[in-house]
Amino acid sequence: MSDAATRRLMKELAQLKSEAPEGLLVDNTSTSNDLKQWKIGVVGAEGTLYAGEVFMLQFTFGPQYPFNSPEVMFVGETIPAHPHIYSNGHICLSILSDDWTPALSVQSVCLSILSMLSSSKEKKHPIDDAIYVRTCSKNPSKTRWWFHDDSV
């Protein structure tokens, strides 16, 4: 971790703990001691297909954070079935790769993912799930996505 990355992550954590937006679960066990890995709970919004369901998002930060994007995926027993989320937890979302900017944050990523869940009309994984999960890299940031239809 560079000094800049650590400084920024400490600020993000303090801000998230003091005023976590609705639907995000953060506590003292959320981050590793060196701040390299975070686990944030996200709660499906009322009135959506995932209402009340709790999922776990894992963030892994490299030394170039926030200039490079964090690696973000769902982990744990329940991976949300969603047309942009593979059953291994990988998420197809452009701000996690090409469209990442240092002005984004853990919080804005969580909120984008929550909003992606909220707009889903169907609880199912992408149709290429089987082949993707079998052949993809362990690191979702390495996937060269062709972004899916963004209407969902």
């Binding site: 979302l93 992408p126 060269r144």
Partner: peptide, 20 residues
Amino acid sequence: MANEPQKSDDNGQAAEAVVT
């Protein structure tokens, strides 16, 4: 998401993008 940049191909598929 509706306001995500459009980078999808015509079929909205990701299969061709799988990299070993």
